[in-house]
Design a protein around this nucleic acid. Structure first.
Lengths: 221, 221
DNA sequence: ACAAACTTTGACTCTCAGGTCAAGTTATGA
DNA sequence: TCATAACTTGACCTGAGAGTCAAAGTTTGT
């Protein structure tokens, strides 16, 4: 503990204990804010609401963020990063035939979305509801998600597993449905939720030309 | 023109000349309001905005509607009725194999939605954005649209034309995609819009198990 | 123990949008 | 032409929420 000022030298990450504490606080705020924005929409949530859930007062938030919009942008960014990271991680951990990986990715995407990020989805639905600056962030997020799916689909198409025609439209439908799922499935739990997700997954798999019950290899033609 | 007071007797429709004028005014207001709500969302539109576009002042609106919410409900209702009526009419005018009719319905639905009712779609996306009372109206509207599609699909399934599994999920995806199309295709025009709609239609047809290029009867198995 | 840095508070201002209304304008019908 | 009903106006009230800030409270390093 005899650190006189060692960290002063390290020029990469934010370092000092006080800095870390500040960062943690900021994360707390962002998480809570994202939660609320997701529940009720950006406009409908006041900073007083956010403050209340954090058990502080509005003024505190302004100590960390210069405006509601800035808080909104950061919240969206953080949420998006966590979400995407989780998907990327999941995908990295998957192996086997493309069909199975895609199925896993779709299912998990919906599952994560509904369970953990109903918040995040709302922003995909009507980007215009968010202030100008957020839209850029949202757009980028969307593209990252898009890429994950597209790469997998391309792989499947190259391998001859999928018969998808019109990848763009298919991807759009997938995203639309997955986003909407947060609205549709809100309130469902346990078995019923499982089943709803499974059914939606099957349907979406159809969009890339792979029937749900067809097994791994289509050797019945 | 020698009407002394003939209409006083008719007890069904709203009658007097003054009444009809009033009704026309109300329709104007509702149309404009729905337009604006659709463009920017219910919350983001102030009555002053609505009044401005109508070239009157806010006070006038309160002469016809007791509150913003009531105006909102009526706007949603009117819009929904016109939209559904148009779809029903369209469907009634279609004939030929189920496949073609469904394709026509989907294409027109998207086309109408994007071109004439970008307004109306927004409310399907996140019903929670609307006040409690509107949601009932929205839900009913959704069910009416749902029924149109479902009946057609059921007919196709009965006839053995479609291989759809999980009608609910498929319908959900269709609605999600059609609603989102108003967001995706906003700004597109002419050829590009045509093509986008066509591609989306093809993709959605796939959801009910009918490949776009497969012709009317699947006699190639 | 204590000063400096960091954090939180709550009372304040400002603006904007919903809603009211008395007074004015315009249309209707006899 | 004129009384009456229909409509419109604009000034006003109100509450809510964004944003500010001096002062008070807490943590930190020495």
């Amino acid at each position: 503990m005899a650190t006189t000022r060692v960290d002063e030298a390290a020029d990469e990450a934010p370092v000092s204990r006080v800095q870390r504490k500040r960062d943690r606080r900021i994360q707390e705020i962002l998480t809570t804010a994202a939660e609320l924005f997701g529940e009720r929409g950006y406009d409908a949530v006041s900073l007083e609401d956010v403050a209340e859930r954090l058990d502080v007062t509005k003024g505190s938030l302004y100590y960390y963020f210069p405006s509601k919009d800035q808080l909104g942008i950061s919240a969206v960014e953080t949420l998006g990063n966590r979400w995407t990271a989780r998907l990327e991680e999941l995908l990295a951990g998957l192996d086997g035939p493309v069909h199975d990986r895609l199925r896993g990715l779709i299912g998990e995407h919906i599952s994560i979305a509904v369970r953990d990020y109903p918040a995040g989805l709302r922003m995909f639905l009507v980007p215009q509801d968010w202030p100008e600056q957020q839209r850029a962030v949202i757009k980028e997020l969307r593209q990252r998600h898009d890429r994950l799916f597209r790469e997998l689909i391309d792989e499947g198409v190259a391998a001859g597993d999928f018969t998808v025609t019109g990848v763009d439209a298919a991807l759009r439908c997938m995203h639309a449905s997955m986003s909407q799922s947060a609205v549709w499935f809100a309130g469902l739990e346990g078995q019923r939720l499982e089943r709803a997700i499974a059914e939606l997954t099957d349907t979406l798999m159809m969009l890339v030309g792979v029937m749900p019950g067809a097994g791994t290899a289509p050797d019945q033609a």
